[in-house]
Design a protein around this nucleic acid. Sequence first.
DNA 1: TTGACATGACACCATTTGGTGGCATATTAT
DNA 2: ATAATATGCCACCAAATGGTGTCATGTCAA
Lengths: 103, 103
Amino acid sequence: MRDVYSAVADPTRRQIIRMLASADELPLHELTAAFPMGRTAISKHLNVLKEAGLVSEHKVGRETRYRLIPEPLQEIRDWVAHYEQFWDARITRLKSLLEEEQP
Amino acid sequence: MRDVYSAVADPTRRQIIRMLASADELPLHELTAAFPMGRTAISKHLNVLKEAGLVSEHKVGRETRYRLIPEPLQEIRDWVAHYEQFWDARITRLKSLLEEEQP
DNA sequence: TTGACATGACACCATTTGGTGGCATATTAT
DNA sequence: ATAATATGCCACCAAATGGTGTCATGTCAA
């Protein structure tokens, strides 16, 4: 199995996630058509996403359809949420400084 | 410059971020002490974080102090927020299914 | 002033990553 | 039956990644 952070680190894989989010289910060849690289490369990326639990696959006839499983992204959301307070605090400090300067 | 997603993909770098978040400012040798690897490795990780705009450095005497810049994490927060609706929708569907089964 | 400390810069290395192409197989269309 | 399509699987490859060690330099303390 594999880290969801590293699964999402690649821009190609993020685009795959975006496509699957807006299309419910897509076969490999249709995904491949959207990229400037070959089928094998996309297949590998899908495997990485699968290892991170972000996609599921099932065969329909001769094609393999992929579907997004969004839940693992919650881990990233929770992680980054922990740091929201820091930029909030910085913005608050900045605002009060500006108010001091221009009363 | 470098992608904030890939900067955050490494567990060592996430731990560095965590340490900097709770300590405001730390020198390289103090960060290094928390890890099972050498100073050069941590220095490289800090450079990656700096290229992603996630840390700033300034020298104080003979040591270089590092500080967290949390703002670039907003990009990740915004990106993942876009997918919250999907797992929300799945949970809603699951709930209504359960209510149907056990009325 | 001398020695210890903190770092930067560099060369080096093994492994992972992100891509390629080719071949075999299952399915569909003609 | 034959041809085209969709895919899995494998070997291969260049470049990036994540470590290491060494050496030179600037700073602080005794």
